[in-house]
Design a protein around this nucleic acid. Structure first.
Lengths: 146, 146
DNA sequence: CTAAACCCTGAGGTTGGCTTGAGAGTCAAC
DNA sequence: GTTGACTCTCAAGCCAACCTCAGGGTTTAG
């Protein structure tokens, strides 16, 4: 019989705040093995593993809802591979899109910066136009009338 | 004297909802040129440009707060180049980090998927272990006891 | 025995960029 | 003159993943 952990001990061992643990419980992601008369939650070592699982999945961009899906399927006694593979495929696709978009945005911003660098700084008498912003296509016409 | 636009007309021309326009006003990002006795807002064409500016800046990942900074500096009558350059540099740096992280995550997920593909599907009698998840390092020990 | 350290519940706040709703006034067309 | 489209204000809700606070009860070390 292993020693049970109080929530604060679990918190320290899993590097997760007690508030987070209770929050996860409210989402049915993690339940204590027992709850004492005084209301204290008690956990076994599996709770640590479970929290690690959650954290690992989160770094892979799984939402808590998705993680719960996995737990739910597992609870049914069914293999989770299919679900997890679907989720992973979705993540990869989404990441690819994000990387593409981020790269495009970065290129755009760099273009703007470069064309700015090639120009003299705005001189004080020319406050109405910011060459960078004009290059950028971020027209400031709307601001000139101020 | 150009025709002034009511909020709904501006909304259509700028492809932004009226609620969003009013929201921007609450943030002092966009003010009507005049407000009638009945409370109706009236805008000129600059409002369209300004909304386009905001949308363009948003696609470049500028927050409304940052956009407002630019407007504020502009309102002071000062050139915005320095600020915008600072903001752009920050965006690029942040995007680089994001791209790196996203790529790393993608690689990780692909590794998981590959090692999963190289293995047979879980067979029904083996519901306690999902090889994918074990490969992944997402231990499911915590779930086996269910 | 007492004080610190822990635990509880329940409700509310945070962030950003909106959206939605209630309840009411206004305007344009027929 | 009435109907329907538009407008107003103010307040609240939404998403995610928590955090914080108030106002208690409990445990444990010295």
């Amino acid at each position: 019989m292993k020693k049970l952990l109080k929530i604060g001990e679990l918190s320290k061992q899993a590097h997760v705040t007690v508030a987070t643990i209770r929050y996860y419980e409210s989402l049915h992601l993690l339940e204590p093995v027992s709850k004492a008369e005084n209301g204290y939650r008690y956990y076994d070592d599996e709770a640590i593993t479970r929290l690690q699982f959650i954290k690992q999945a989160q770094t892979l961009q799984f939402s808590l809802a998705e993680i719960q899906q996995v737990f739910d399927v597992r609870k049914q006694g069914e293999p989770v591979c299919t679900l997890v593979k679907t989720l992973i495929d979705g993540k990869i696709t989404k990441l690819e899109q994000e990387i593409q978009q981020a790269t495009a945005r970065k290129t755009m911003l760099e273009t703007y910066r470069t064309s700015w660098a090639a120009r003299p700084l705005d001189n004080p008498s020319n406050v109405k136009v910011c060459s960078l912003i004009e290059e950028v296509g971020l027209t400031l016409d709307c601001l000139e009338a101020i």
